[in-house]
Design a protein around this nucleic acid. Structure first.
Length: 413
RNA sequence: GGCCACGUGGCGGAGUGGUGACGCAGCGGAUUGCAAAUCCGCGUACCCCGGUUCAAUUCCGGGCGUGGCCUCCA
């Protein structure tokens, strides 16, 4: 009776329903989340998946045991945007050196931001550049994966590129609900002459002498965007794992293509069993963009007065992000931050130094229901109220301990 | 144009086929020397139009609005 846990149920983009989580291996529950491309400081929109999936990571750890959950969040440090940024910011430096400067600085900042937001370090935080060419330890790599796809007839070489042939996979498009034929009929896709099919996407492209490149059977080049996640997820989580997460915008093409690559290369029926996607964020009712001047980085919020006229503690940002269900759109406003700050203030006051109690079951139950953070917050309010209203010191301490358990170890909120 | 979400009280935001979650702000009261803190009470919300139903905010259809994706954007 000690572990009368609620089952965890999660909304699966693949099936468009909420499903109970049945891990392939309860001793190693595996989750992969697409991390940042490190060409610029992470903005507040980037923070959403970081926080949401950290919450899920914590919930899984609580549920299955800290040692029984593997969470991989990659860092994409090879990308043409990075190259462009490096050339812009360090015009006098050799490109490779400039790139390293950009990616290291940005990646460090990202890791620091995530920590400030109360996130645990993922179990593994691989960098794409370490998984391009075959490795000494035999972990999955991009070049080998591409080779397998060619061997199996899912990819072809053309015009110096290696392309994935989408027609080689009968149910390509299932995740994003896209019908290949309809897409083609739309004719809004620029057709590259060397592609067999306009929807075919790049696995490997050649690099010019001044672009970063790695040796491969198809010449010196660099990987396409999607293949890195196929390689890194397989490297740490195997061919099929439990949960794959990311932002809504990644469903197509990124996740669709990742899934196609992995399944075809491995000959599996699935890449991940549950695909989760967080909703988008707006700032003060508007789409966030540099041209509107409302582009705001995590660092701006933590360390400057640019938003709401003051700095914000990471816990306030975390709570603000979780007041709205992760699949809903969220409007990021200063009012929200002020409100969340006062909520935290009230809870912290109620908690004082009470010894920890077990995490309240109702609280966990809310989170188990597809991360119903609003429901969980309601429980916290109720607990804080009980603490304040408790007649005896004993009740007060006990309830405060339960509140503290919800606030601290799980740091669900 | 195609596909997909979403639309709840002043604000934020869950949820549900049938007695108005929860929080913030506001108002009234209790307590308090005053204040703070705390507690109690107060709001008759679910975009519009049809349909199904004894009953719809909740299901179905249409409309309007907002947002997203449609090749590298979380």
């Amino acid at each position: 009776m000690t572990s009368a846990k609620s089952p965890i149920s999660l909304y699966n983009t693949l099936t468009r329903t909420k499903e109970p989580l049945h891990p392939l291996d309860e001793n190693n529950v595996r989750m992969y989340v697409c991390g940042p491309t490190v060409y610029d400081f992470a903005h507040i929109g980037n923070a959403r998946p970081v926080i949401v999936f950290d919450l899920l990571f914590r919930l899984l750890r609580h549920h299955f045991g800290d040692e029984h959950v593997s969470y991989v969040r990659n860092i994409t440090d090879v990308d043409d945007k990075i190259n462009a940024r490096a050339a812009r910011d360090f015009p006098d430096m050799p490109l490779n050196e400039a790139i390293r400067k950009v990616t290291e600085k940005t990646a460090d900042r990202f890791v620091a931001d995530a920590m400030a937001l109360g996130c645990l370090e993922p179990t593994h935080q691989p960098r794409a550049t370490d998984f391009i060419v075959p490795r000494n330890d035999g972990k999955s790599d991009m070049v080998s994966l591409i080779g397998q796809l060619i061997d199996k007839g899912n990819a072809y070489e053309a015009n110096g590129e290696v392309l994935f042939d989408v027609t080689s996979m009968p149910d390509y498009g299932k995740l994003s609900g896209r019908n290949l034929a309809e897409n083609l009929a739309g004719a809004r896709i620029a057709v590259d002459a060397h592609k067999k099919n306009p929807a075919d996407f790049v696995l490997w492209k050649q690099s010019s002498a001044d672009e970063p490149g790695w040796e491969s059977p198809w010449g010196r080049g660099r990987p396409g965007w999607h293949i890195e996640c196929s390689a890194m997820s397989a490297a740490f989580l195997g061919e099929i794992f439990d949960i794959h997460g990311g932002g809504l915008d990644l469903i197509f093409p990124h996740h669709e293509n990742e899934l196609a690559q992995s399944r075809c290369a491995h000959g599996t029926h699935a890449m991940a069993n549950i695909w989760m996607h967080n909703g988008f964020l707006q700032v003060e009712g508007q789409k966030m963009s540099k041209s509107l001047g409302n582009f705001i980085t995590i660092n701006d919020l933590l360390d400057t007065n640019k938003f709401g006229g003051q700095k914000w503690h990471g816990r306030v940002l975390r709570l603000a992000m979780l007041t709205t269900h992760y699949r809903q759109p969220i409007d990021w406003t200063a009012d929200r931050l002020f409100e969340c700050r006062s909520m935290l203030y009230d809870w912290n006051k109620a908690v004082f130094e009470a010894p920890l109690q077990p995490v309240p079951a109702e609280f966990l139950a809310a989170l188990c229901e597809d991360l119903n953070t609003s429901g969980a917050i309601t429980i916290l309010h109720a607990l804080a109220k009980s603490v304040n209203a408790a007649a005896t010191g004993l009740d007060k301490v006990e309830t405060a301990g339960r509140l503290r358990a919800a606030l601290e170890p799980i740091r669900a909120i």
